[in-house]
Computed example of a mutant assay.
Amino acid sequence: MTPPPSSDLPKPPAAARPPIRLSAQVLTCLVMCLIAAAIIWFTQDAPLAVFTRPAAPMWQLVIGQGLALLAAAVSYGLYRLGASSESTARTIATYARLDLAGFNPLWMALAAAIGEEMLFRAALQPLLGVWIVSLLFLVTHVPVYRFRKLDRASLVQAAGVFGSSVVLGLIFQYVGLIAAILVHLWIDIVGLLVVRSAIRSRTM
């Protein structure tokens, strides 16, 4: 019996992409911190002052925690308002590849907050300013969000990323790096917990 041509054979199912592990997020954070440390060391007169100005570290903790809780509440409220939107569905699909088991949302959020704030705010913002750094922040997130076409959902996602970066940049500029890290941390924790909850509700 003559075998059918290869084009007629059923194609094997595409292998599911492996989840992105916590170790990958931590490694990314370390690389960002090393790059940031090099930039800060060679471009700033007092490198360690990046942690102590403009507000003292204790005030940064207090103000940052207050702003972080507010940001977390706003982030969750915006999700609830747009829970059924295409942009929310795409964002959930984007982050669904992360391994969100156990306490991973906390550790992943912490890695992202420290790495990105060190690089974009502490290292690059003093050189380039809030607006250019926020544009760079958006550009580096394009592969993450996989903006396929310039439609309303993509514009909403891009505006959210850019706007969040501007807010974090202003917090860094007027309060300090520690405060910016706290706000970033809580926004990401809420976002990752929302994604995990959405994934579990769909599989039940």
Score class of each variant (00 low, 15 high):
Leu78Glu: 10
Leu70Asn: 06
Ala83Trp: 07
Leu67Gln: 01
Arg90Gly: 07
Pro57Cys: 02
Arg80Gly: 06
Arg97Met: 15
Arg80Met: 08
Arg90Pro: 02
Arg80Asp: 04
Ser85Pro: 02
Gly64Leu: 00
Val62Leu: 05
Ala109Leu: 04
Ser75Thr: 14
Ser85Met: 09
Gly82Thr: 06
Ile39Val: 15
Asn104Leu: 05
Ala93Trp: 12
Ala68Arg: 01
Asp45Pro: 12
Thr88Arg: 14
Val74Ile: 11
Ala72Gly: 14
Ala83Thr: 03
Ala109Ile: 01
Val50Ser: 12
Ala111Cys: 07
Ala56Cys: 10
Ala89Ile: 05
Tyr76Arg: 06
Asp45Ser: 15
Leu98Ala: 06
Ser85Arg: 13
Ala111Arg: 05
Thr94Cys: 15
Ala72Pro: 05
Glu86Lys: 14
Phe42Tyr: 13
Asp99Gln: 04
Ala112Gly: 12
Gly77Ala: 07
Phe103Gly: 03
Gln60Val: 10
Gly77Asp: 02
Leu81Met: 09
Ala101Lys: 15
Phe103His: 11
Ala101Arg: 15
Ala49Ile: 11
Ser85His: 09
Ala55Arg: 10
Ile92Thr: 11
Tyr95Ala: 12
Gly66Pro: 02
Ile40Gly: 12
Met58Thr: 15
Ile39Asn: 13
Thr43Leu: 07
Leu106Thr: 01
Arg80Asn: 05
Ile92Gly: 08
Gly66Met: 00
Ala83Tyr: 05
Ile92Ser: 08
Tyr79Lys: 08
Pro54Phe: 00
Ala56Trp: 13
Ser84Gln: 14
Leu110Cys: 03
Ala113Glu: 06
Asp45Gly: 15
Gly77Gln: 02
Gly64Arg: 01
Thr88Gln: 14
Phe103Asp: 08
Leu70Ala: 13
Leu81Asn: 04
Thr43Pro: 15
Pro47Lys: 01
Ile63Phe: 04
Asp99Ile: 09
Trp41Glu: 15
Asp99His: 04
Pro54Asn: 00
Tyr76His: 08
Phe51Gln: 06
Ala89Val: 03
Ala83Pro: 02
Gln44Met: 14
Trp41Pro: 12
Ser75Pro: 00
Gly66His: 01
Met58Pro: 14
Arg53Gly: 13
Ala93Leu: 15
Asn104Val: 03
Ile92Cys: 11
